[in-house]
Amino acid sequence: MPHDHHDHDDPHALLPPDPALRVRALETLLARKGLIEPAALDEIIDTYQNRIGPRNGAQVVARAWSDPAFRAALLQDATPVVADLGFFGRQGEHVVAVENTPEVHNMVVCTLCSCYPWPLLGIPPAWYKSDAYRSRAVREPRKVLADFGVSLPEEIAVRVWDSTAEVRYLVIPRRPEGTEGMSVEDLAALVTRDSMIGTGLARAPTA
């Protein structure tokens, strides 16, 4: 449906209204003028579709659970520590790891846009970018957690991190019971994306 208002003349309104056609029109225009290379677009998409995702962050968490020196260095200054594992770059230039404990549960949001640690978790899921999450996570985090099926005891404080600058936050969830002696690889399989945002908990091992 075309926009039913023409009282402002923002340039974007000159493009076709259907979003898929709008993107294609802009891409075609830029490519014809030599301003973008379509193969570069394919490369960007392949990177975030297939190569960078929450398995990266899960490796960091599993290492932190297994190696006290790694955990201490991560909590002290995460950026160089995760860079050593190969996780750095766009939307992960400044990383802070925050650890869940029996006293505090951490949860991350970006109320102003959709800031998210791309090199560690990939492109954010739709819910992270939704108005409902952005508006409610800071004011009623426990009700938002309930939407994810998570319920925390009253004694645990919820600390919500609103990503208002270029610092990106990684939640280190609590290590599940019954995982003593498990390998880093097996532990990483218990670390869900949502547990590293703070809207979930790490999975319990299957006996």
Partner: peptide, 8 residues
Amino acid sequence: ENPRDEVT
């Protein structure tokens, strides 16, 4: 929701 909660 809870007096213990915080926002950073």
